[in-house]
Design a protein around this nucleic acid. Structure first.
Length: 211
DNA sequence: CGTTTTTGACCGGCGC
DNA sequence: GCGCCGGTCAAAAACG
């Protein structure tokens, strides 16, 4: 599967419920040209972002570029960038998991391979597409039926060999028009799709800046 | 033919 | 200890 070829989903705005404990931001996607502020996991342990500052033949400060701020991204911010499309709920940092009573995601995150919890962020997006194009390539490695929900949960891993980022995708049991995408970890490489888009532009900018 | 998806088995945590 | 459940593995199937 290659989600890069999918048309961008166009979910409507989800208004924040009154007294919502959640942060709100747009979901990750690179299809938009606008780079909105990055997501922040509010409680996950701090983790430095290890991005190559010069990951191509071009001498580009990708960290500053991708984060939109000099000095790079703040801690706990995933490489995924935001789409201008829909307003999306971000769950706070217990992994972005919903209350278990909703039967969607377990409250306590058990991680079989690593003990320390990695930064996790969940997006809640109203969309007919389960897979949102966030610009990264993912390989599906599992699918499980979810208790109290007719929709299964899918597990994906970033296909980049050195990258260990995972994500889970499922539909809300309460409102099946809403897709919950949970990202775990931080990409340690630039987004291929963004590179493809920006490289010609950056080359031109560098060329022009010589005058 | 290489890559990705599917799917049942397996593992570990947790509650009872 | 046992069963339930979420998460992962891995072999087979499907796909381009």
């Amino acid at each position: 599967m290659d989600s890069l070829d999918r048309p961008p989903p166009l979910p409507p705005v989800l208004p924040p419920p009154p007294n919502s404990p959640y942060l709100f931001a747009s979901p990750p996607s690179l299809l938009s040209s606008s780079l909105l502020p990055p997501l922040i996991d509010t409680s996950a342990p701090a983790q430095a972002l290890a991005l190559p500052s010069s990951s191509s033949s071009l001498d580009i400060d990708w960290i500053s570029l991708l984060s939109g701020q000099p000095g790079g991204l703040p801690e706990n911010v995933p490489m995924a960038l935001m789409e201008n499309a829909p307003m999306t709920t971000i769950y706070p940092g217990n992994g972005g998991v919903a209350d278990r009573s909703e039967g969607d995601i377990k409250k306590k995150v058990t991680n079989r391979t690593r003990k320390p919890t990695r930064p996790r962020i969940a997006f809640q997006t109203r969309s007919v597409d389960d897979i949102l194009d966030d610009g990264f390539r993912w390989r599906k490695y599992g699918q499980k039926a979810v208790k109290n929900s007719v929709h299964p949960r899918s597990y994906y891993r970033c296909t980049h060999h050195t990258c260990n980022v995972k994500k889970q995708v499922q539909r809300l049991a309460k409102d099946t028009s809403i897709v919950v995408t949970t990202y775990e970890g931080i990409h340690n490489h630039p987004c291929e799709k963004l590179m493809e888009t920006l490289t010609p532009l950056l080359k031109q900018m560098q060329f022009l800046s010589r005058f």
